[in-house]
Amino acid sequence: MKVKLIVSLLLLTTYFTAFSQKKQNMAVVEKGLIKISIMYPYAEGKTFNMEYYETKHMPMVAGFLGSNLIKYTIEKGIASGIPNQPLPYMAIGTFYVKSLSDYQAAIGPNRDAIRADFANYTNISPVILVSEVVK
């Protein structure tokens, strides 16, 4: 019985140590990355096709970014941070890239194709924020 308890404690210690190191490594990897947030504000009468965005639009743009792209995320707005207030954004797409200049070089020649695809999933003009991950 004591042997099982000791083995269990060792396994838990190993798991938490590995998890903690992985979490620290993830923070180091993300610091300094460029984050491009494409935010779609909520407004009455506006529409957003999440399925199309997830399966067609974002993969298309990700393909343009090539090896500069670290990852991308898609978020679906569900509520405001303040009860009984309108939803601020219907959706947010985010790209994490290594280099802003490489991002701009990839997007520039494909800008018209990206914008033309908006009509396939939304009637919202997005707000875009480019930032640097600091932590």
Rank of each mutant, 00 (worst) to 15 (best):
I124R: 07
A119V: 01
T73F: 08
I34D: 00
G81D: 10
M90V: 10
M39L: 13
P59D: 03
V28G: 11
K98G: 03
T73S: 12
G32I: 02
M58R: 03
M39V: 07
I107S: 09
M90H: 03
N84P: 02
N68H: 04
E54G: 06
V29C: 03
Q85R: 05
L87W: 05
L65F: 08
A105Y: 12
N120A: 14
L69M: 01
T47C: 05
D117C: 01
I38P: 03
A62S: 08
G108A: 10
T47D: 00
A116Q: 07
I82S: 09
K31S: 13
Y89I: 10
N120Y: 02
N110D: 13
M60L: 15
S37Q: 02
E44H: 09
A43Y: 13
A43G: 15
Y42A: 15
N84K: 03
H57V: 00
P88N: 13
E44S: 13
E51Y: 10
M58H: 06
K56C: 10
S101A: 06
T55F: 10
P41T: 06
K71P: 03
P41M: 10
E44G: 04
A105R: 11
D112K: 04
F118T: 10
L65P: 12
L33N: 13
D102I: 13
V28M: 15
K35G: 07
V97S: 07
Y72L: 14
I78T: 02
E75Y: 14
Y121D: 07
I34H: 14
I34L: 08
K46A: 00
V97F: 02
R115D: 14
Y40W: 11
Q104T: 15
V61Q: 04
Y103N: 14
I114M: 03
N120F: 11
